[in-house]
Amino acid sequence: MKQRLSTLMAAAVMTAAFAVQAQQPMKKAPPPAKAAAPAKAKDGITAEFEKFREVLEEDNPAELFEAKGEDIWKHKKGPDGASMAQCDLGLGAGVVKGAYVQMPRYFADVGQVMDAERRIVHCMVKYLGYKEEDIRKQPFSNDSKTPDHVSVITYVAAQSRNMKIAVPQKHPKEIETFRIGREIFDYRAGPYDFSCATCHGSDGMRIRTQDLPNLRKPAEAIRAYQGWPGYRMTGGFMLTQQWRMNDCFRQQRFPEPAYLSDSITALLTYMTATANGQVYKGPGIKR
């Protein structure tokens, strides 16, 4: 384990070096005399990154956070001596294997649908004595801190590696949440008149050189799910799917969705259930 960690640390140093490089202003190839072909023109950094990611995924620094999350899940005790062994992620108390790819789902104890992140935070508050208000103060990682719940999410996600997404759509609330999520996906508003669908509702589009998956289709909906939670190379910390949704709404020019809100659960239910049957590869690496 020690040796493995040192390999990981080396990888982390490499990523930091890469991060510095990535933050340099993008220098483009010498200008072609004619208009660029509308064919796919990946910029150099994107191509480099993809090669680098392939190498790095063997020893993904996400595993550092996974190990920390595992420790919290297995060993940490709450003020009453409770532990995450009592946490039901939908497959029974303490069962982690395969749970991540089967959320969001309906939880009878709270009478509502919860996505993975929301459920895990719920359990950490209930059993381990974390304060929800503290978690809401810093819900997402930054370069000085990756909060504990993010590590636990990474651990739980890793326990669904190479498993098929199977979000249940049986309980009336699961079906209702999916339908509300679909409405949110299509809802245009704000100063730019954008909805999620403006960029993610048709085939074969790009923003700059970035391919945009059509999230209405199962085979492409997986792309919004794959690689999350993800280790962000420019910064060296883990980011979750809730963060990704938050940043989408920022770019959509919307106000900010509250952390762990019903709207995000609904949107994740729509997007994840649409990807049902696709294989999740576990925590990933993001630029």
């Binding site: 993008m26 700059r208 050189t209």
Partner: peptide, 8 residues
Amino acid sequence: PQETSFGT
């Protein structure tokens, strides 16, 4: 024509 990083 000089900008190859454009959306579609």
